[in-house]
Design a protein around this nucleic acid. Sequence first.
DNA 1: CTTCGGGCTGAACGTCTGTTTAGTATCCTG
DNA 2: CAGGATACTAAACAGACGTTCAGCCCGAAG
Lengths: 196, 196
Amino acid sequence: MRSVGEDRTGRAVIRDEALRLFAARGTERVTVRQVAAAAGASPALVMHHFGSKDGLRDAVDQHVVATVEELIAQLARAAPADALLRQLPPDSPVPEYLGRLLVEDSAAGQRLFERLLGASRDALQVMVAEGTASSGDDPSVRAAFLLVNDLAVLLLRNRLIHALDLDPLSADGLTRWTGEVANIYAEGLGGRSSSP
Amino acid sequence: MRSVGEDRTGRAVIRDEALRLFAARGTERVTVRQVAAAAGASPALVMHHFGSKDGLRDAVDQHVVATVEELIAQLARAAPADALLRQLPPDSPVPEYLGRLLVEDSAAGQRLFERLLGASRDALQVMVAEGTASSGDDPSVRAAFLLVNDLAVLLLRNRLIHALDLDPLSADGLTRWTGEVANIYAEGLGGRSSSP
DNA sequence: CTTCGGGCTGAACGTCTGTTTAGTATCCTG
DNA sequence: CAGGATACTAAACAGACGTTCAGCCCGAAG
């Protein structure tokens, strides 16, 4: 099955194609046969490697979570979550899959969210120590607010692309978005514009 | 099929039960047979009233969109989107369904998002006119940011419930959440606590 | 009373699903 | 070279799915 120039194992090819399809259409709307066809394999091979469709989904989950953990580890501290995404190729299916993972009621998604919330808490504490932020009346809620604001862009990316004609995860979009966010976080909604 | 004290039509019962199930599990994971059973009817009756499962989903979409439009209309101007949700019963399936509607790639969801973005723009302009906010360097992005921050709570509600042990849509949760948000919007992240 | 039409049902249909099975080719290992 | 694991396939299976169909029940209209 593997084509000549291909260095991934057949298992990895199937996993990657599943990731692409799951991200684009959602797990439920993608069949094992479609994954197999996209990977140039037979449905039975998918079962051979992953045991079941659930097993395939678990493997994709695990792969995406590992990718995200790696990104978090690279930017150890105080880096805005948006910046993480610059490290992914612009057509990566990871952000969209991540969105689905976080919205669905899966154990993997809940675990990941709690991990991210911890990272958000840490980042906030660093900023407090640096004097660039206050921890607010309710530090847990403040950290959660900062996190979900970053994640919202992921979850509503397609809505924003069509409504604003701007992909908030493109280079241009990221600049405009984070610019406005930094502005608000610095001085609140009332703050004078940075270019008055 | 209608029970004695029931004043809804059979059609409405099916639509409401479908809304409940779709909100909880997602459209794909709910079968026509499950909706029919929940409504105390036969699968064939669902088809009789809605033509197809897609027709049922369209009817639910339309009903939810109408509910939301009504809420928007009631609080004509400058009210935080969170406050809208106080008007719904605490166990209403509408917020969760709304979240799914906005995340999925449906035309209805896109239309609704654009409507909400318009409302957010209007609210921001009102605040600017009142002098309680600046329109920022990029008013469109600023309005979008404010909107998706409100929507993020909807989309990640279940994650927050489990991670913080706090439902941001409960009375208590809404107070804590909006308190922190108001704090940040008023003075930015660096602003001194409101109860020092 | 008859007729009509909408609410409603049980049973079936064809299709698609995830999965199993039995078997072939390929490659490493001893 | 023997032999056993591993990668892989075609074909079939059982069940669930959305949907269709023929017909029942019952209140309203003529």
